[in-house]
Structures are given as structure tokens and as C-alpha cells.
């Protein structure tokens, strides 16, 4: 399990646009870097990141080797209803990790 850090509000007003910042510890080995034996080290990157809001995909990202190690991703979404946000990272060597956060949405 890689360490993750997710920053988002715990509550929001309906219709409010809020920012989500997600960080995960991962080497993001490019596959272009020579190792100690002079041969390139095999690629090991996170390829996709998705954010689901109560099951519906609200944000997706495709990552390439040019994304820095420990990928930091910041994006926005609209508060529609109280519920759960699921963050999922998937990559090489069957890497897969998901994290959940709840949000309380109030009227007014």
C-alpha cells in the first residue's frame, strides 16, 4: 500500500465547486533510466487515476512517464449530494489502490 494524501473539504454547499488534491507515493520509473548494469530499468508507472462521486466518474487522468514521481493531481468537482468519493490509481505491475472520503453536502 502506497501512502496517499488527499485534501478536500469535509462539507460543502450544494452546487459549490471545490478543489481536490491527491498525492500518492510512487516511483514512476520511466523505463528510460539505465540501472546499475547499464540496461534500462523496466517501466513502472501509474497509468490512470479516476475519481468517482457516488459511483459516477467525475474526473479521470492518464499518466505517462513524464509525470513526476509521487504524482500530485489537483482538480475540481461540484458538490451535488452527500456521499462518498472514491479515488483510484492503477498502473504497471498490477498496481491498484483506492481511497475513499466522505462529503456532507448541505442546502443553502
Amino acid at each position: 500500500m502506497a501512502r496517499t494524501l488527499i485534501h478536500m473539504p469535509e462539507s460543502a454547499r450544494r452546487g459549490e465547486v471545490f478543489e481536490i488534491r491527491a498525492l500518492i507515493s510512487h516511483v514512476m520509473e520511466t523505463g528510460y533510466r539505465p540501472g546499475a548494469d547499464g540496461r534500462p530499468v523496466a517501466r513502472d508507472i501509474i497509468r490512470t487515476f479516476t475519481c468517482r462521486y457516488n459511483g459516477e466518474i467525475v474526473f479521470g487522468m492518464e499518466l505517462h512517464p513524464a509525470v513526476a514521481a509521487n504524482p500530485y493531481i489537483a482538480f475540481h468537482t461540484t458538490a451535488t449530494e452527500s456521499g462518498e468519493l472514491e479515488f483510484r490509481w492503477e498502473g504497471d505491475r498490477n498496481f491498484s489502490q483506492s481511497e475513499r472520503r466522505t462529503i456532507t453536502v448541505s442546502d443553502a
Binding site: 465547486v17 479521470g60 487522468m61 492518464e62 505517462h64 513524464a66 504524482p71 493531481i73 482538480f75 475540481h76
Partner: peptide, 29 residues
């Protein structure tokens, strides 16, 4: 990009639910 080993850096998928087209990340050059 033009001069990394690969031309693609990152791609983001947004929707009306994004509310704001504003994304950030950290890349290698």
C-alpha cells in the same frame, strides 16, 4: 512536449460536473 523521450505528458478528462476547468500536476522535463 517536444523533447522528452515520449511526446505525451498527461491527459485529463473533465465533465460539466468538474465545475471548473482547472487542473494541476507535477511533470518531468
Amino acid at each position: 512536449n517536444e523533447r522528452n523521450p515520449q511526446p505525451e505528458v498527461a491527459a485529463f478528462n473533465l465533465s460539466p460536473r468538474s465545475g471548473k476547468a482547472d487542473v494541476s500536476t507535477r511533470i518531468r522535463l
